Amino acid sequence: MLALPAVTLFAVVAIYPLVASVWTSLFDQSLLRSDRSYVGLDNYSAIWPDFLSRLGTTLVYSVLATAGPVLVGVTLAMLLNGRVRGRNVLRGLLMLPWLLPGVVVSFLWAWIFNDSYGVLDHLFELVGLPQVNFLGRPGTAMIAVVVAKTWNAFPWVMVVALAVLQTLPAEQLEAACLDGASRLQRFRYVLFPHIVGPVALVSMLEFIYNFGSFDTIFVMTGGGPGTSTMTLALSLYQYAFSSFELGKAAAMGVLWLVALSVVCAGYFLLNRKLESRS
């Protein structure tokens, strides 16, 4: 009886929408008409090529948008962990990108990368470099989106890495210095083993979040140019609200959920492995 309210809430919020989505994926259903017809697995076979293509794009974006914040965040955490003048002020300032909503960050970087009045192209013009349409070219659109996401997400990784670094006993670093270890050796044999576990968990969480990310790509590129930045989230949105095909959108969502479940399983296995070590 004590668990009944929580179980009921979970069933209403999570279980029912999931079952309804799976059921909808078996029908030819549209927002433009009230009736629907049972088609079985036809929706899955119809969207399967699109799913594979969008899955590849989603994986590329997720990997890059995870690696960027982790590299920048860990590097800044290492710098701020040392004796840097005004480091408390720097910590506060570096948290600002994380405090901004994703849509605001997306519009900000869309303005920076704009080929007509963007700040970046203006700087290129000042130094005599040719202007680049970052958001209008397939080769650079993904890079622009990843840069925006990296700027937005690195403070979270930085805070976690910095918190872990501050739990490292100073005696270990002092002993390594007395033994003649270089900075690279101190990082490799002292610092890195200390932070690798928490940073790995943060990386997995960030990857899971990026796997379902929607706002940054939707605002900056809309999945274009062409389909160069079309992820699973945007593809589902297009099926549902551009083509009005709810059955295919639900099928895409179910396949997306299966793929994301594999990623989440990897996170739980990693978490269990790290807990067993500790």
Rank of each mutant, 00 (worst) to 15 (best):
V19K: 03
A233D: 10
A200N: 09
L76R: 06
W256E: 09
R83Q: 15
F268N: 04
V104F: 02
M95L: 15
A148Y: 08
N88C: 00
D50R: 09
V70E: 12
Y239A: 03
S45Q: 14
M220Q: 12
D215Y: 05
M230P: 00
L236A: 11
M142T: 03
A3H: 08
V196T: 07
A175H: 05
M1V: 02
L79G: 06
L55E: 12
E125G: 05
V196W: 01
V160K: 03
L55F: 10
G197N: 05
T140H: 12
L108Y: 14
K273D: 14
E245N: 14
N88M: 08
I217A: 07
R277F: 07
T167S: 10
A144Y: 08
A233V: 06
G102H: 07
A144R: 02
P130V: 08
F134M: 02
T24S: 15
W256C: 04
P198I: 03
P17W: 10
Q172G: 00
S30M: 02
A14K: 06
A161C: 05
P198A: 05
F187P: 02
A11N: 04
L100E: 12
L9E: 11
F187C: 05
L80N: 10
P193T: 11
V146L: 02
T229M: 02
A163T: 01
V159P: 04
V103K: 06
V145C: 08
V103T: 11
